[in-house]
Structures are given as structure tokens and as C-alpha cells.
């Protein structure tokens, strides 16, 4: 089943996105050309508008917003106060520390969970490619099936299990949950990568008397840098953007930024400070956006890797 679900060729053409158009030959400036650019520009506006609105709203004063100024207009007077408030003094109920604690929690969770999940998945992929024991493929098949299981089906049993172990709502529990749900796709990613390596690499290591771990750390890990970049991008954005697991498993002490953002915005007491809310929203989006713009075409590959899920 996994053989055809995984389509290695589906990832390869994505690199060709960057190799230039192949469509019909270029025409002269015609109505069709104008139509094409018109469509693309309207689409671009649709995608850019929310970002623009978030930005200008976050720079406006609350009176300017509330007296019904136009949503799209540049602020009459720019204020950075909402950003400061969103960062350090916005309230969730009676807790007025802003997004700062959530940011720190998200950094911790993302850093630890990314490293742990990728290390485990790399070992899995390596073992599945070179050290296949009996039933290994069956276990892997179940894991791939897990990629399609809605989280809601297994969340409650996980909560019960973690409560029994006494780790529910702690830092390890949220890291474990991210590791579990990242494992199917990351293992798939690494297995496909290691299986595509020339087997002579592995044989050479065996001939030199290297064992399971030596071959992994001395030969395979250095080879796996490109796929690891993809995995890191995938996990960084995925874990940072997680909301569901954060609400259930992280507990109050380790509440990630997305959950805290939602709490701040949905707090209904007092006047709704739209400018602070939008500043908070942008602050939460900043990290994955930075990953996106820095990683460039690697991000597209990360998505392709996500598509391998299918």
C-alpha cells in the first residue's frame, strides 16, 4: 500500500517549478495577455489584503478604528503602542503579560519537539531501509495509516494514558504528542531518502565492521543533510502553528503562542482592542513567515514532502 501512496516522482517535479515556464509560446500583447495579468493581479490582491489589513490596523489608534475609519486606509497617525501592548501587557482574563510567555513556550516546544521528532524519524527511516527486521514493514504500514487518522480519534486515549503516567499537561506531554503525530510523515520522508541511496555506502560500512549506530552516525547522518533541512522546515512551521494539541496537552504553564493569541482575542471583557489583536496576530505569524521567506524554494519542497503524506 505504501509503495504507491508514496510517490517519489511527485516530489521531484516540484523542483521544476523553478526551472521556468513550459506553457504555450509567448504571444503578442493581446486581450488574452491583459486578461492573464488582470486575473493574476486580482488574485495577488486577494492574497495580500489580509496581511495589509492586519498591518494597518495594528498601527492605528483605537479611537481611529472605532469611529469607523476605512479598514484599508493607512493610519492617520502611526502608533506602535499596540505592538508593545500585544507583546507585554495584553490580557487573557486576569493574566496581563501579553504574548511574551506564549512566545517563550512556543520556542521551547518547537525547538525540543523538532529535534526529538526528527532524530527518531531518521533512525526509523534508516532502520527501515537497511535493517529491516521481521514485521518491520507491517509496523511501518500501520504508522503510515496513522497519517490519515483524524487526531480526534486518538486524543482522548492519549489524554487518559498520559494522566495515568502523571505527565498530562506537562512539557514532556506536548513534546511527545508532536513527536507521535509528526512521526508518520517524517519516517516516510527519511525512509524514501535512505532507500534511494546507493546500497554500496551501507555495504562499505559493513565491510569495515561498523554496526547499526556507527553506520547511522558516521555515514547516514552526514548524507541526510538535504532531507533534514526539509524536515526541519516542515516541523518548525507545523509545530509552531499547532493549536489543537496546545490547547489540550500543553497545560497552562506551557501554553503555546497560538493558544494564547486565541485567548487574548476571544477575551470578551472590556473594549475589544482590535489594533492590539492584529498586532498579536502578526507577532504569532512572524516566525513561520520568517521561516518561509528565508527558506525560499526549500519551503516548496517541504510542502511537497507534506504532500507525500498523500
Amino acid at each position: 500500500m505504501t509503495q504507491t501512496i508514496v510517490q517519489p516522482e511527485a516530489t521531484a517535479p516540484l523542483d521544476r517549478v523553478l526551472s521556468g515556464p513550459r506553457g504555450p509560446r509567448k504571444q503578442q500583447i493581446t486581450m488574452a495577455r491583459i486578461g492573464i495579468y488582470g486575473f493574476l493581479i486580482i488574485a495577488a490582491l486577494f492574497f495580500l489584503t489580509p496581511l495589509w489589513v492586519m498591518l494597518v490596523t495594528s498601527l492605528k489608534t483605537l479611537p481611529e478604528i472605532r469611529e469607523g475609519g476605512n479598514l484599508f486606509y493607512w493610519p492617520r497617525e502611526i502608533t506602535f503602542e499596540p505592538w508593545v501592548q500585544a507583546w507585554s501587557s495584553a490580557c487573557t482574563g486576569r493574566d496581563c503579560r501579553g504574548l511574551q510567555p506564549g512566545f517563550i513556550n512556543s520556542v521551547k516546544i518547537t525547538a525540543v519537539a523538532t529535534v526529538v521528532s526528527i532524530l527518531i524519524a531518521a533512525i526509523n527511516g534508516y532502520a527501515l531501509s537497511f535493517w529491516r527486521y521481521r514485521y518491520a514493514n507491517l509496523v511501518f504500514g500501520i504508522l503510515v495509516f496513522g497519517a490519515f487518522v483524524p487526531y480526534q480519534v486518538v486524543i482522548y486515549p492519549l489524554v487518559v494514558a498520559m494522566r495515568e503516567m502523571g505527565i498530562f499537561g506537562t512539557f514532556p506531554s506536548i513534546v511527545i504528542v508532536h513527536t507521535i503525530f509528526g512521526m508518520p510523515i517524517l519516517t516516510l520522508l527519511y525512509r524514501n531518502f535512505f532507500s534511494s541511496l546507493p546500497p554500496e555506502l551501507f555495504k562499505a560500512g559493513r565491510v569495515d565492521g561498523a554496526g547499526f549506530w556507527q553506520i547511522f552516525f558516521r555515514i547516514m547522518v552526514p548524507m541526510a543533510v538535504p532531507i533534514t533541512v526539509v524536515a526541519v522546515i516542515l516541523q518548525l512551521t507545523g509545530i509552531w502553528n499547532d493549536f489543537l494539541f496546545g490547547t489540550i496537552f500543553a497545560g497552562r504553564a506551557h501554553m503555546p503562542m497560538t493558544v494564547q493569541l486565541n485567548n487574548i482575542v476571544q477575551t470578551t471583557t472590556g473594549i475589544r482592542e482590535y489594533n492590539v489583536h492584529m498586532a498579536a496576530t502578526m507577532l504569532t505569524a512572524a516566525v513561520p513567515l520568517a521561516v518561509y521567506f528565508i527558506s525560499g524554494k526549500w519551503f516548496v519542497r517541504g510542502i511537497a514532502a507534506g504532500a507525500v503524506k498523500g
Binding site: 489580509p50 502553528n241 499547532d242 493569541l261 504569532t284 518561509y292 519551503f299
Partner: peptide, 13 residues
């Protein structure tokens, strides 16, 4: 770029 943003951010915006 919107795909890089979480659905919470998308929803609130």
C-alpha cells in the same frame, strides 16, 4: 505565503 501561517492566525485575520 498564507500557507505558512497557522489557521488560527488565518481565522482571526
Amino acid at each position: 505565503y498564507p500557507f505558512a501561517m497557522s489557521l488560527v492566525v488565518t481565522g482571526l485575520a
